[in-house]
């Protein structure tokens, strides 16, 4: 088990190296730093001096991989690749193109993100599973049929409309919550209620339908028939046997997203004005701040890989049949 986890970790690290090289290539081969400088400065007032100054201030004036002018290890370390990409592995994020400290920004902004995402995740999971269980319990009845219809209808609506509609109904029409904004402490609850609610509702369609499929697949298995043959009630079969066994496929999709909760949701945060990492990323994109986008790509991959490893570990915990060698 330990050996397995160590091997997974090493593989994860290898994948991160791949992500790192890939993003570096994406950001520095498609366009030269000169191009980026010109895009940032705006095409009108670009002079060679301004471009040089922009690059020097942000450390883009060095060679990409090998600095011939330096001696010893500085040949490798005093390059764009080392400064901008390799340092990410020790979580040194450096400064953004606007000169802000990215590491500090991330450490302050991930908490509001988590404050929206975590409740939405937990409540969402409970709602989706209960809804799916209900449909599975009443399978092949009108309740199940209309439940599926509702799910398909709900998953056909763009997430943007859930947010716009929610803001309109709860914020503007009923005046229950402020439309957007954020606060610290307990005051935050009134700002968080709507984003969390919308986050849960917008996921019902796809998730409940997916869980329903999992439950139904589990219900058609032999052990369920055996359980019924023993004379167990349908409720007991569903909650004791099916739910427990269906948790294994559900875990695959669920555990992997837990670390990503830190990253926040781009659209939700920007609509509700929550100062989390999602709106941070959106701002970076609209300001064409390449440094922040690069860091976020890397961070996202790190969290995703952690999620994958957690999934593997959780498998061994919930499913005694799974043994990794």
């Amino acid at each position: 088990m330990t050996g397995y986890i160590i091997r997974r970790l090493i593989y994860g690290l290898l994948v991160l190296v791949g992500v790192n090289v890939f993003t570096f290539a994406l950001f520095f081969f498609v366009n030269s730093p000169d191009d980026m400088a010109r895009a940032q400065l705006g095409a009108k007032r670009v002079t060679p001096e301004a471009v040089e100054k922009w690059k020097r201030e942000r450390g883009y004036d060095k060679p990409l991989f090998l600095n011939e002018k330096m001696l010893g290890t500085a040949k490798v370390t005093n390059t764009v690749f080392f400064e901008k990409s390799a340092r990410l592995f020790v979580f040194e994020f450096g400064a953004s193109d606007q000169g802000r400290n990215i590491g500090y920004d991330i450490s302050t902004r991930m908490w509001p993100s988590l404050a929206v995402q975590l409740p939405a995740f937990i409540i969402g999971l409970l709602v989706y599973i209960s809804f799916a269980l209900m449909m599975a319990f009443f399978r092949a009845t009108y309740l199940d049929f209309w439940g599926v219809v509702l799910c398909v209808l709900m998953m056909s609506i763009s997430g943007l409309f859930y947010i716009i509609g929610g803001q309109f109904i709860f914020g503007k029409l009923w005046n229950l919550v402020p439309i957007s904004g954020y606060d610290t402490g307990f005051e935050a609850i009134k700002f968080l209620a709507l984003p969390v609610l919308i986050g849960v509702i917008s996921g019902i369609g796809g998730n409940a339908r997916w869980y329903r499929t999992i439950f139904l697949e589990e219900i058609s298995k032999d052990y369920v028939r055996t359980a019924r043959a023993k004379g167990l009630s349908e409720t007991r079969v569903l909650f004791r046997h099916v739910l427990q066994n269906a948790m294994i496929p559900i875990l695959t999709g669920v555990v992997v997203v837990i670390p990503l909760l830190f990253m926040g949701a781009l659209i939700t945060e920007s609509f509700f004005g929550i100062p989390g990492l999602g709106s941070y990323t959106i701002d970076a994109i609209s300001q064409q701040d390449f440094a922040i986008v690069r860091v976020m790509v890397f961070l996202g991959s790190v969290l995703y890989i952690i999620g994958l490893i957690l999934t593997d570990i959780s498998y061994t915990l919930v499913d005694p049949r799974v043994r990794f060698s």
């Binding site: 994948v15 992500v19 890939f22 191009d35 895009a39 781009l266 991959s301």
Partner: peptide, 28 residues
């Protein structure tokens, strides 16, 4: 390895990064 690497980058961020780079390319 290739597809694990590509799929480990969160979709929106990969798209955002690539589109940003494309915008710069088109501008230049």
């Amino acid at each position: 390895y290739v597809y694990t690497t590509l799929s480990s980058i969160p979709g929106v961020l990969l798209i955002a990064a690539a589109v940003l780079m494309m915008q710069v390319y088109i501008e230049n």
